Simulated scan of single mutants.
Amino acid sequence: MWDVCTLLPILILAMKSIEIFAGAGGLGMGAHRAGFEPVLMLEWDRWCCSTLRHNFSNSITLKTPQPTIIEDDVCNIDFALYEGQVDFVSGGPPCQPFSLGGKHRAYADTRDMFPQAIRAIEQVKPKAFMFENVKGLTRASFSSYYEYIKLRLEYPSLSRNSDESWIDHLSRLEEQKTSGNHSDLHYNVVARVINAANYGVPQKRERIFFVGFRSDLGIDWHFPEEEYSKDALEWTKATGEYWELMKVPFSERSPATHKPVSGSLLFKKPWITVRQALEGLPDAEQDPKGATEFLNHQFQPGARSYAGHTGSPLDEPAKTLKAGVHGVPGGENMLRRPDGSVRYFSVRESARLQTFPDNFCFHGAWSEAMRQLGNAVPVSLAEKIARNIREALTISASA
């Protein structure tokens, strides 16, 4: 528990951040809510940049001066301009090279932007960084490249030579690590696959997060503890507490999917469900007039259920929202009603599932907005991790 003397410097110490591969700004907004002041947001996609410009110039959304928003390829940016001026760098390098739905080309894929993320770290030399990517990066077939990425993040100054393969570079990085020589820029890096539902996001979304602290700061850190669990949700269903809380009629109540383990319930909150996340939003299909009172809340026709695409049931966290790189944005981006019928989530409903505030406006057509949301980091999850990082940095600075 933090006392007043500990919290005071956390509240007043200004810390600046840069967001690269910003997308629609989920990770950047989470970092801002955690107390970082964004000075630069970089994204190449025009619709994402339009979304960023609208929301990060909005005094309701942003409590600090507006960041510079650059619409450009990351390869064209000289990050050395920010050396010594930025405490924290974050971003989500494109995930298609490692996605289960992609071509799985990893280092052979020109969309692999981890080398550019590492270049940003080398040039800015921030006190800490956080990068997010798909769980697919941890698959056995990518194991060597996963280790390569992690070591590159630890030793960003140990660059790859022009005539050197990444495998040879990996060997050189391994030698550097085992030598114990940390005279150059060095980060202590941890990585963990996180299920967003275990952190209070109404979505079963598994992603890997890399967090690093500059080694000269001497910071001891670990990922924040999980506070939510499936077992706790199942227990509230079994006791009827959940159904009564949500005023669900008996005809719509589903049986518990498994017997909860009582010992796992002691310090956990129930997973947050789709029904809870959408509470207060009118159904855009059944009440189109009421839906107009909310941003981006229009009914999208054409949803259908088929093998592997059955939608998200109301009384569980949603399945992972997808960006839809292969056509219709995520055939799973649907709500499944208790009677088995399905409809697409509206953009606003999807934003709720990604924990964006209701005043956050997404630009572009439904398919474009859903792509932005499918690629986004849940705001509240980003905030929890970034807040932990900021507190560690503040304590280090105050020591």
Rank of each mutant, 00 (worst) to 15 (best):
E279K: 15
F213Q: 03
N161Y: 10
G28R: 09
R160M: 12
S396M: 04
C49M: 01
W366H: 13
A284S: 15
K125Q: 14
I194W: 13
D216N: 07
H326F: 14
A140Q: 12
G23I: 01
D78A: 06
V248N: 10
A80D: 12
E175F: 09
G84Q: 07
S229G: 09
R105W: 00
S254L: 08
D78W: 02
F345C: 11
F356K: 09
L233Y: 06
R371K: 14
P38D: 08
G327V: 08
G280D: 12
K259I: 15
D109K: 01
T310V: 08
L11G: 03
E391P: 01
N388L: 02
A196F: 11
T257Q: 05
E83S: 07
L321I: 15
G200A: 12
M246W: 01
I389M: 01
I219L: 02
A232Y: 06
A120Q: 08
F345N: 13
N55M: 02
D283F: 13
D287M: 08
K247Y: 11
L8A: 14
Q123M: 05
F267M: 13
H182M: 04
W235H: 15
D315N: 15
Y199S: 09
L42C: 05
Y199N: 09
R53W: 04
G25E: 06
Y228D: 03
E227A: 11
L314R: 03
G92V: 09
E225Y: 02
L151V: 04
Y107E: 13
L295D: 00
W243A: 06
L173V: 06
G30F: 01
E206Y: 11
S346N: 09
Y107K: 08
L42A: 04
W2H: 07
A365E: 15
P249S: 05
R33K: 07
W47D: 15
A232H: 07
A397Y: 01
N133M: 02
P255Y: 01
R53E: 12
L265H: 04
D283S: 10
G212T: 00
V74R: 08
N198Q: 04
W166D: 10
R214F: 09
I272K: 14
P329C: 09
V347M: 12
L170D: 06
P65G: 06
H186R: 11
E279R: 13
P288V: 04
I60R: 14
E349T: 11
Y199I: 05
S183E: 08
Y82W: 09
L151Q: 04
S183Y: 00
F210Q: 00
A117K: 05
A117W: 04
K269H: 14
Q96V: 15
K247A: 15
K237L: 08
K230I: 15
H363G: 09
D287K: 05
E368C: 11
G218I: 10
K384H: 00
V4M: 13
V261L: 13
E332H: 11
A128N: 03
T110C: 10
E285R: 12
Y242I: 07
K135W: 07
I20G: 06
L245T: 13
L81K: 13
D184C: 04
A31S: 13
